[in-house]
């Protein structure tokens, strides 16, 4: 049963890595982003194929089970990505405000001219 999961997960991660490489070639992803995602998927594959490795790592940092360790890391990553997304959205919001503001001021100038 585990083998089916391992094979399916590996296929999925290979597809994800192929997509990352494709996006890098299309210049939609920077070198740092591409490396991060490749390392991420390789690490995920390692844990899936060698669960004991995660336990060894977990024990190194004082966590009992490997799966707990993986969950903690995943949660921390998700929070970090969410934070980055928030920043990005707020930054875009400010850009939109600048455009809306400039348009409002320009329209007023046009009204005064005519």
């Amino acid at each position: 049963m585990l083998l089916i999961f391992q094979i399916l997960f590996s296929l999925f991660s290979l597809t994800a890595i192929a997509a990352v490489i494709h996006r890098k070639h299309e210049n939609l992803l920077g070198i740092r982003g591409a490396l991060f995602w490749i390392v991420f998927w390789v690490a995920a594959d390692s844990v899936v194929w060698w669960p004991h490795g995660a336990t060894l790592l977990a024990n190194q940092v004082g966590i009992g089970r490997g799966s707990d360790f993986v969950v903690y890391i995943a949660l921390a990553l998700i929070f970090f990505v969410l934070f980055r997304l928030h920043i990005k959205i707020e930054s875009m919001n400010r850009d939109i405000t600048q455009i809306v503001r400039q348009e409002a001021l320009d329209t007023q100038k046009d009204i005064v001219k005519h």
Binding site: T97, V100, R101, E103, A104, L105, T107
Partner: peptide, 10 residues
């Protein structure tokens, strides 16, 4: 004098 934001910005 009215300055109009096309979108609600706060």
């Amino acid at each position: 004098i009215v300055l109009s934001h096309k979108l609600n910005r706060g």
